[in-house]
């Protein structure tokens, strides 16, 4: 149904996060930007976490091998369907032989391609999400290659033509602001560094992956030797190794870590980690847990009006 001609830097199938297995060391995986994926699924009549293609930095080309209904969201450059520009954030109707091309985006990192009914994918531990390091889920547990063929779960499904409401379309730039709470080892930061954490424009380092993003800047100072017993970490946890360069963990976050957990990005802003690219500026906005919960529920309410269901 979808024949991959050029996969781009890293394209993988992502669906529901692989929850329930962190105690066995198995990360969640799932979309790096769950909001963009949910918006793509909405446009083709799918549930928010139906299996989609996550396309990193564009440079993607595929041929449709059957009539199908598609939508593309997230970080996109020019999108061509048979050489004709089409828009992100609206339902697209393709026919057999059509060629779909995504150019690299100017801002943001990941685009989501949804197909009506969702893509077929392998399921491991109850999830179709690809976790590349352990080859779980998706298409043989790996990133897609030229020549791969994907199919939808069902065909012939006619879907209305929809557009994402204007106020829900995220606008990406080279700067990100993430609501963030203090965490279990914030007290290990020297007082100066504790202020610096929330007053610094960090620069996303060259290591900006699904696992995590380095936040480079003047090094933070950790009191003591920075050693601790391995403790649980999650997507959103910001760890600080002895180098003083913190790392914000993303969707493929490991399950435990031994570096001080100096902060945690609020649940409602974790999806933005999926769109940060090396060199982007990152500002952490200090919130109490209660503020973060309240603001998160407000954001959920806005999204739920359009999506019809809450994000997990």
């Amino acid at each position: 149904m979808l024949h991959i001609l050029t996969p781009g830097l890293q394209t993988s199938l992502q669906g529901t996060p692989r929850t329930g297995y962190r105690a066995f060391g198995i990360p969640y995986a799932g979309p790096a930007d769950e909001v963009s994926m949910a918006l793509a699924n909405r446009l083709v009549g799918n549930a928010p976490t139906a299996t989609c293609l996550e396309i990193t930095y564009g440079g993607f080309e595929a041929e449709l091998e059957a009539t199908c209904t598609l939508a593309i969201t997230g970080a996109v450059g020019e999108i061509l369907l048979n050489g004709t520009p089409v828009h992100a954030h609206q339902t697209l109707h393709g026919r057999a032989g059509d060629k779909l091309t995504l150019s690299p985006p100017q801002f943001g990192a990941r685009a989501y391609l949804a197909i009506a009914s969702g893509f077929q994918a392998q399921s491991h531990f109850g999830s179709t999400s690809t976790y590349l390091p352990a080859q779980l889920g998706g298409h043989e547990g790996r990133a897609l290659r030229t020549g791969d063929r994907l199919t939808a779960l069902s065909t012939g499904q006619a879907t209305a033509t929809l557009s994402t409401p204007e106020d829900l379309i995220p606008v990406f730039s080279d700067a990100f602001a993430l609501r963030t709470c203090e965490s279990a080892e914030t007290h290990l930061l020297a007082p100066r560094s504790r202020d610096q954490l929330f007053n610094t424009n960090f620069v996303a380092g060259r290591q900006a992956t699904r696992m995590g993003i380095e936040l480079t800047g003047p090094p933070l100072e950790i009191s003591g030797d920075g050693l601790m017993k391995s403790a649980p970490v999650f997507p959103g946890t910001i760890q600080c190794p002895q180098s003083g360069i913190p790392i914000a963990l993303s969707c493929d976050a490991q399950t435990t870590g031994g570096y001080p957990r100096i902060a945690s990005i609020a649940r409602c802003d974790r999806h933005q980690l999926g769109q940060i690219r090396p060199g982007n500026s990152v500002l952490l906005l200090r919130r109490t847990p209660d503020e973060a919960v309240r603001e998160g529920l407000e954001k959920q309410t806005l999204l739920k009006k359009w999506l019809g269901s809450a994000l997990p």
Partner: peptide
């Protein structure tokens, strides 16, 4: 939602 044991910590994740 998720319960994870560290060596001397146990974390519980929940819905807002």
């Amino acid at each position: 939602l998720e319960v994870v044991a560290g060596l001397d910590r146990v974390a519980v994740q929940f819905a807002a």
